[in-house]
């Protein structure tokens, strides 16, 4: 078990205990008339219990645990997550067209490191195609913003 797995198990134990406490406060009811917290309470207890086993059953194998990421493996997924979060934040402000153009742009610059010609062409044509297909033809009510 590597460090990441140990942290995950610990997090799941915490999640189970916290969710059980919250569920208990929702109203446990009794066996005849289970309340809204009854089912989530027992699920949380089971989650904490299973995660506890997961934590302790593998505690001796710490040394043999392989690292979760090789050198630089996490770089591109991390950047992609950042670009996507940025996209969701901007979508409501700038509208679909502009935010999608920026998504293509940043994706191709930061993650794929494409040539400038490809970046410009794909970003513009890609966004335009999506806008035409979904907003113009399929009439999907996409968020409006500064451009469209």
């Amino acid at each position: 078990m590597n460090l990441w797995e140990r942290w995950t198990a610990a997090f799941l134990i915490f999640l189970g205990v916290a969710a059980a406490a919250l569920a208990y406060r929702m109203g446990f009811g009794d066996l005849h008339h289970p309340g809204p917290g009854f089912f989530p309470f027992w699920l949380s207890i089971i989650l904490a219990f299973l995660s506890f086993i997961y934590f302790f059953a593998n505690r001796r194998t710490t040394a043999s645990g392989k690292p979760l990421w090789g050198k630089g493996d996490w770089g591109r997924p991390g950047l992609a997550a950042a670009v996507m979060f940025g996209y969701t934040l901007l979508m409501g402000e700038l509208g679909f067209f502009s935010s999608s153009f920026l998504l293509f742009l940043f994706w191709l610059i930061l993650i794929e490191r494409e040539k400038w010609k490809t970046i410009g062409l794909v970003s513009l044509l890609g966004t335009l195609c999506f806008y035409l297909v979904f907003s113009f033809f399929l009439k999907v009510p996409l968020p409006r913003g500064i451009l469209f």
Binding site: Y87, L108, G126, F134, P141, L142, P143
Partner: peptide
């Protein structure tokens, strides 16, 4: 490199179009 942002956009439109909520 081109497919990935396209998939992201398709997913985003699909999810957004359910409730029109970012």
């Amino acid at each position: 490199s081109i497919l990935a942002p396209v998939i992201v956009l398709i997913c985003s439109i699909g999810v957004y179009s359910m409730k029109n909520d970012v």
